[in-house]
Design a binder for these strands. Structure first.
Lengths: 119, 119
DNA sequence: GTATGCAGTACCCTTTTATATACTAGCTGC
DNA sequence: GCAGCTAGTATATAAAAGGGTACTGCATAC
């Protein structure tokens, strides 16, 4: 693995520095990230409640994706030093600014469900 | 492996039948799918040109994701029986209707690049 | 005759995601 | 005392997705 200037961080698309869509997809790369943001849009949420609402994610993966979103400044993590532990996840301003993306997906999905219902 | 009603197709989110966002994310699940749609938005494109423009995808994966998008009715595949082979990929109406999603991502990415440039 | 382009397929390997379990630490409820 | 709650970490294993490269068959280009 040579460390030349064409290398991109793990999971990043070539050209993510200058292409807006590639940049966005690099940040949102991860199966659960958009869903996490979607669940946090209406209100902050604690870890276990988030896990229940996502129904299907393991705590291992949920932790990893939350940490990644936190590192990218999308999600804020507020730890209250009480017993039992209380950790609240919320969207940063940067995270909330993704709302139009989620909204467009929601609209497209609504149309899809109407036109091609599953059962 | 029991075949009860909670089973979902491979890659699908629990609740994709009724939740619009889960439904959209299920269709768009795949690292290159949104980027493929983005590249096809302005004009149809042939296989190898698409591969060059995506720069980073392997032909194996590009084929697989195009087939999946075709199965979901997002992309149309037009084969011209000539030598050398000429296969043109284009967006269906359903595919073009994803433009607002890409547009929202493009706008978010533009802002990101402006506020946190990489180099 | 060798090189290149097209649109893939076949084979193998690595990374990511999924599942499952055990463990932490203090507090509450029984 | 023991179980259960919180929000994780650690470990192991397995399945799924992603990635690299060689190869095809026919045609044109050199």
């Amino acid at each position: 693995m040579s460390d030349d200037s064409t290398d991109t961080p793990s999971g990043a698309f070539v050209g993510y520095e200058t292409c807006p869509v590639r940049r966005t997809l690099t940040v949102l790369n991860g199966k659960w990230k958009l869903l996490i943001i979607y669940e946090l849009l209406p209100a902050p949420c604690r870890f276990n409640e988030l896990k229940r609402r996502l129904s299907g994610v393991s705590q291992r993966l949920l932790t990893a994706q939350l940490r990644s979103l936190e590192a990218d400044g999308i999600v804020d993590r507020l730890v209250m030093e009480v017993v039992p532990p209380h950790v609240e996840y919320s969207l940063s301003e940067k995270g909330r600014s993704l709302q139009p993306v989620l909204q467009a997906m929601e609209m497209w999905g609504e149309n899809e469900i109407k036109n091609s219902p599953i059962s």
